[in-house]
Write a protein that binds this DNA or RNA. Structure first.
Lengths: 148, 148
DNA sequence: GTAATTCCTCAAGTTCACTTGAGATCAAGC
DNA sequence: GCTTGATCTCAAGTGAACTTGAGGAATTAC
């Protein structure tokens, strides 16, 4: 058991490109060992670490945020059930928040459709607070800094 | 009525940076006229056009997609009620789809929390199809091309 | 009428998340 | 043992969405 994986193996298992895995390493997301020849050797736990990265990315987290979360996980061992549970609950809370924001946006948009949105002041879509909330931890850079 | 706005006025009204408005022009999102001195002059309708751009961005659309939608709107006039209604309904459908995807992800994640996610094959977070769906038309570039 | 803004264009820089390419080394199959 | 393929490092390129800066002209405020 615990056969070492090459970067190519890991790429095949995760669906990531080899270059992406190396890139993630430079950002502290994986910490492979090296064999005598200098080649990276991964453990099976790294498959799960990278899966976690992909899932978190899909939720809109940036790599630095993901790295911060992962810093609490053991580097070379599979995360324990409690490690995983804590992080999963954080995900869950985030997903809930994003659903709530989208529902709020949807409700407001419905009134927009009705009114023809001729009044900018009352338009649900033109509401900086809503826009910020709607994307949650999502693509922040799409929104500028503060709605000021 | 219909006093012309300078780019600075428009920036103040929309909260966008002047440079961003000029950038949007190069991408066909606004089509200002020019005065004798070569300065841009905007109409009041452009406030709404840019508000639309901001709202669509918050939903995760890229500028090129937004430009495509906007191509159907009159360039120098406020969109009619039916123009707006059609686009708003498209938004609504998109929001609905994203809510559904997030709810699906949430439900699957719940089982993950329970199981400790020790089985990668059955992990809800490690499901390319879900990941793609969860973000809808969102930050596509965060996800790579095809989960192949 | 002049000084202070605001605006103009154009080029280049920024961040994120990678990919691509060059040139070289390592590992594995036969 | 040698060739083929995988891997190595490091630099540079990509695309989205802008910002920043330079150098100069137009507008506005007094």
């Amino acid at each position: 058991m615990s056969a070492q994986l090459t970067i190519g193996d890991l790429a095949a298992r995760t669906g990531l490109a080899v270059s992406a895995i190396r890139f993630y390493e430079t950002h502290g997301l994986v910490h492979p060992l090296r064999n005598a020849g200098g080649h990276r050797r991964y453990g099976r736990a790294d498959i799960r670490r990278l899966s976690f990265v992909m899932a978190a990315q899909a939720l809109g987290f940036g790599l630095s945020e993901i790295a911060a979360q992962m810093a609490h996980l053991p580097a070379h061992k599979a995360p324990s059930k409690s490690d995983w549970s804590r992080i999963s609950k954080g995900f869950r809370a985030d997903i809930d928040a994003r659903i709530a924001a989208l529902e709020s946006l949807r409700d407001r948009l419905d009134s927009c459709i009705g009114c023809g949105c001729l009044s900018l002041e009352s338009c649900a879509l033109y509401n900086p607070a809503d826009r910020a909330a709607a994307s949650g931890p999502g693509p922040r850079y799409l929104m500028g800094e503060d709605p000021d």
